[in-house]
Design a protein around this nucleic acid. Structure first.
Lengths: 246, 246
DNA sequence: GTTATTCGTCTATACAAATAGACAATTACC
DNA sequence: GGTAATTGTCTATTTGTATAGACGAATAAC
């Protein structure tokens, strides 16, 4: 569905930025697929009644971000498209990415012991002060970082979690070795926030950028919480899809 | 959780706009409740290493939007907080709003007959060309518009839908009178888009603003789709919460 | 080879945003 | 009443954004 949109002057977002966002939205909505040719600079300028230079500034920014590729004399093309990220009861990053013919990679970025504060204790159904593992991970798609997460799991139950995760890059494996044969998502909360500096560095985003923040609780087969996760997603590289499993 | 954030210079979003977004995020995350006092202009200016005037510009924008209230000599206070909007199998706007001690109102904004195109036919499980009702609604919380929706339902099944909805302001009532004793949400897709001009007018948002777009399918007791809805939510007035039931 | 199209580069001007400084007005506290 | 804190208002300057025009370079079509 093509976005029919006018730009907002005076709202504190530069025109070039708004046009860049429009182009990204068009790509995300499927109007322009990977390798498709987007409208010319002159067409976009006419569409929004702006100067061609303003359009060039927008295209330059997206080219720098790896989203567009401009070929002199030929036009401007889509270099990459965002990942559709389903949030269902059973969400497995690698499967999602591979199913979209993209290449998933990732790594553990941090591992530490931590005592449960009030929020996390509530989410995990444990006492305040319970020893936890706090695991930081980074997910990469086709070479571009898309998602950073922080997960909290009980240390008593997942004793050598960092070593297992480091070797396997998989929470499913960690769960299995701790005797949790299956786990599913119990609840999810979506908000938008401005990116934190350490996340900005990992995601390769500029400071002050908005990210989708997804907080979720995973439960084991017995319905007890086993993992609380807070993920920060690069909103222009990921599109959230929620499916209510019967 | 306080947002620890620096602002991004050169990314095409003015500093005042970024500070306004930060303040909104702080309010949305609960750092500052309704009627709480936010940091002073001087504190914010120091925090972000900007001029006080830049902070004043941000506060002025939020004051204009009804989010903040500045009192000379005393400080700046939160005038309103966003609505937490749960997306579960059974989502009823009035109940959600009233449960948060806010006042829900709303109205039908449009009603028309329309033939099902390929997308909607797929979503509703009907043939292309099937006669449908297309119903536009606007939802208001404490006097501020938060959500516009467009719903599609089969005309053959919901023959006098516009009249019933106009009188009752309730899809639940329309469903009941059509013999659908209960309906639940089957699937939900969340994306972010730039607001369309007609929606901007109804939501009182500036053009070029991002909105959360939620597409959902409601099914009757027999599991068959009865309603396809596309909602556009003012992202700074609504916070999405997803709960996986059962 | 010529023409048309599209992106790339350069110079110049006007307006918005950001900064700086100062002082006024209001509120709160002692 | 005096002082401190905080928002409100005014003037001024610099930087960033947007616009305008022109021409060059590369590609595509005939």
């Amino acid at each position: 569905m093509t976005q029919q949109v006018k730009i907002d002057r005076g709202a504190g977002i530069s025109l070039w930025r708004q046009i860049a966002e429009w182009l990204k939205a068009e790509i995300a909505s499927g109007t322009y697929a990977k390798d498709a040719r987007v409208p010319t600079e002159a067409e976009i300028a006419a569409r929004f009644d702006v100067n061609r230079h303003t359009v060039r500034r927008a295209i330059a920014a997206l080219t720098n971000d790896g989203i567009l590729r401009a070929d002199q004399g030929r036009g401007t093309y889509v270099a990459s498209t965002p990942l559709a990220y389903p949030i269902s009861r059973r969400t497995r990053f690698s499967e999602i990415v591979s199913a979209q013919d993209k290449t998933p990679t990732g790594k553990m970025t941090a591992a530490a012991e931590e005592e449960a504060d009030a929020l996390i204790a509530t989410q995990l159904g444990v006492n305040i002060g319970t020893p936890l593992w706090r695991i930081g991970t980074l997910r990469v798609v086709d070479g571009f970082p898309v998602l950073v997460s922080t997960s909290w799991l009980e240390k008593a139950r997942f004793g050598n979690l960092p070593e297992i995760y480091d070797a396997s890059n998989s929470f499913t494996e960690c769960m299995k070795q701790a005797g949790v044969t299956d786990y599913t998502r119990k609840s999810t909360k979506v908000t938008a926030e401005l990116i934190e500096p350490s996340d900005a560095i990992q995601l390769g985003l500029g400071e002050g950028q908005p990210v989708l923040v997804v907080e979720s609780v995973n439960v084991g087969p017995d319905g007890q919480p086993v993992q609380y996760t807070r993920s920060r997603m690069a909103a222009d590289r990921i599109q959230l899809v929620i499916e209510n499993d019967g």
